[in-house]
Amino acid sequence: MRVANRTTIKDVAREAGVSVTTVDRAINGRGTVRPETLRKISEAAQRVGYYGMGTFRDRLDQSLPEVKLGFVLLKQSQEFYRNFAREIEQAVTARKDIRGEVLIRYSSSQSPAEFAEILTELGETCDAIASSAVNDQKLDRIVQVLKDKDVPVFSLLNDFAQGIRKNYVGLNNMKVGRLAAWLITKTVHEPGKLAIFVGGNRWHGHDLREVGFRSFVREAGSGFSVLDTLVNLETRQLTYEATLDLLDRHPDLKGIYVAGGGMEGAIAALRERHAEPQVALIVNELTAESRAALVDGYAIMAIATPLPDLCRDLVEMMIAARGQPDDGVAGQYFLEPRLHLPEIV
């Protein structure tokens, strides 16, 4: 007698749109079943609540292609990059069409030599690599070597190895810079001086943000002027010290845009110097410190990278590119930034 509400392989077959015989072969290993059909049966079994599949899931996993993906991020101690790594892991785990292995390496500096060493190491075993790195001819050569070995390289957040890398994945940095300038010039009612921090001269993305920022301020003709660009090497301490110096030397300072890392230093300096917010600060990425600065009014906007969307789409592109002949197209894949304001954090 059939137990009420108990699912059977007939239910699985009906849900999957295949024959009972095919389900029986898949579950009990009595013949060859295509990987696509195995996945269809597995998903159907989950939907109808059929769990008597024995070693079926193990066979399904073994039928999937093994894909090893390498990633190069920056300082592991920074919250943003820890969040980035977590989203990468989740994006690969969510894929049901591969047996994915993730290798994440961190560069502790802005040294091209360190990036080159990490990329070379990952290129020995990975099917595709995605990296955030500085712009440097040494890295152009490394990416070309990897390309010749059929290991596609994707540039993340900063577009390095242009013309050689497979694709750039990140924000439209020129647009981000203009967005920062737009908000400051539209919300600060008394014109004055504006400051901008970049991580270093080898970050092309920061250069684009600076160009976008300056061009908008110039076009707006609203009485604001932009001071000489400050390089902070994306460090908290340098940004902190430079911000205090700015406040001492420029009493009419109205706004600061930190185009790369190191925002924590600017936040700390503004909190230390002003009991109430007086300078409009715009930062990149939403972290615990930038969220607190927004809530307290010491920052007026955080421009954030949509990490879940970026990682999902990036992993899709990396899987599609592995083992494929280069088509000669080196594209750009822009994601829309997430804008966080004091009232919606």
Rank of each mutant, 00 (worst) to 15 (best):
1 M>K: 09
1 M>S: 13
1 M>E: 11
3 V>D: 07
3 V>T: 14
7 T>Q: 12
9 I>C: 05
11 D>K: 00
12 V>I: 02
12 V>W: 01
20 V>F: 09
23 V>A: 00
26 A>N: 02
30 R>I: 05
34 R>A: 15
38 L>A: 07
39 R>L: 15
42 S>F: 14
43 E>K: 03
44 A>K: 11
50 Y>W: 08
51 Y>M: 10
54 G>N: 11
54 G>I: 06
56 F>C: 01
57 R>Y: 14
57 R>E: 15
67 V>D: 04
67 V>H: 06
68 K>D: 12
70 G>Y: 04
72 V>K: 03
74 L>G: 00
75 K>M: 06
76 Q>Y: 10
77 S>D: 09
87 E>H: 12
88 I>N: 11
89 E>R: 05
92 V>I: 15
92 V>W: 06
94 A>D: 14
95 R>I: 11
104 I>C: 10
107 S>I: 08
107 S>H: 03
108 S>C: 10
111 S>E: 15
117 E>H: 11
119 L>M: 15
120 T>S: 06
126 C>T: 06
126 C>I: 10
127 D>A: 00
128 A>M: 01
130 A>G: 07
130 A>Y: 05
131 S>V: 02
132 S>I: 13
133 A>T: 01
133 A>Y: 05
139 L>V: 02
142 I>R: 02
145 V>L: 11
145 V>D: 15
152 P>K: 07
153 V>Q: 11
155 S>R: 07
156 L>R: 06
156 L>N: 10
159 D>P: 07
161 A>Q: 11
163 G>I: 07
165 R>A: 15
168 Y>Q: 03
169 V>E: 09
170 G>N: 12
172 N>I: 00
173 N>I: 02
176 V>A: 10
182 W>V: 00
184 I>F: 02
184 I>H: 04
189 H>M: 06
192 G>T: 05
192 G>M: 12
193 K>D: 08
193 K>T: 07
195 A>S: 12
196 I>G: 05
200 G>Y: 07
202 R>E: 15
204 H>T: 14
205 G>L: 01
208 L>F: 06
209 R>V: 04
210 E>T: 15
214 R>C: 05
218 R>A: 13
218 R>Y: 07
220 A>E: 14
222 S>M: 14
225 S>M: 03
225 S>Y: 00
229 T>P: 13
229 T>H: 10
230 L>Q: 11
234 E>G: 02
235 T>A: 02
236 R>C: 06
238 L>R: 13
245 D>Y: 05
248 D>W: 04
249 R>A: 15
254 K>P: 14
254 K>G: 04
255 G>H: 03
256 I>V: 15
257 Y>A: 04
257 Y>E: 09
262 G>M: 03
262 G>R: 08
263 M>P: 05
265 G>L: 12
265 G>D: 04
266 A>L: 07
267 I>H: 10
268 A>D: 14
275 A>N: 03
276 E>P: 01
281 L>T: 13
284 N>D: 12
286 L>F: 08
289 E>Y: 02
292 A>K: 14
298 Y>S: 08
300 I>F: 03
303 I>K: 09
306 P>D: 11
309 D>E: 14
310 L>I: 13
315 V>G: 06
317 M>T: 04
318 M>T: 10
319 I>G: 01
323 G>M: 05
329 V>M: 02
329 V>S: 00
335 L>D: 07
336 E>G: 00
338 R>T: 14
345 V>S: 08
